[in-house]
Nucleic acid binder design. Structure first.
Length: 123
DNA sequence: GCAATGACGCTCT
DNA sequence: CAGAGCGCCATTG
């Protein structure tokens, strides 16, 4: 079962970022991690989303891996649900269940994102 | 404190 | 282009 966070409040940051993903757009785990200020910790994003349970207001469905593919967590059915939700939002899927990242990749321009980018690319 | 696991990412084959 | 392997860090037992 999902690894229940033992009182970690840092995941709220992840939820905040995922919540900013516009409808019809998708972001990768690594991207979300960078926006949170924790580059390289893409896995943590996965745990945070897994801890949601599906009853949260966080659009976890818009978060996929860098390959544009939907990751499974032990229940393949959820992957189908996720794909259906994304398709309903206007996200196009290619053969093999891959998302066209070039067309639907989320490009945030918010100040927070700019700050994160600045740290990633200092001058 | 060490070993095992995981909704990941990148590189090589 | 697809599949397999290795590396990354954090959480859990």
């Amino acid at each position: 079962m999902p690894r229940t966070p033992k009182g970690s409040g840092g995941w709220e940051r992840i939820y905040a970022v995922v919540r900013r993903i516009p409808r019809g757009r998708v972001a990768t785990y690594g991207q979300v991690a960078r926006l949170c200020g924790m580059p390289g910790r893409a896995r943590e994003v996965g745990w945070a989303l897994a801890a949601l349970g599906g009853e949260s207001a966080v659009p976890w469905q818009r978060v996929i891996n860098a390959l544009g593919r939907i990751s499974g967590r032990g229940e393949p059915v959820a992957a189908l649900v996720q794909r259906a939700l994304l398709e309903r939002e206007g996200v196009a899927f290619a053969s093999g269940g891959r998302v066209d990242l070039e067309a639907h990749a989320w490009r945030p321009r918010a100040a927070a994102a700019r700050r994160a980018r600045a740290r990633r690319r200092p001058a």
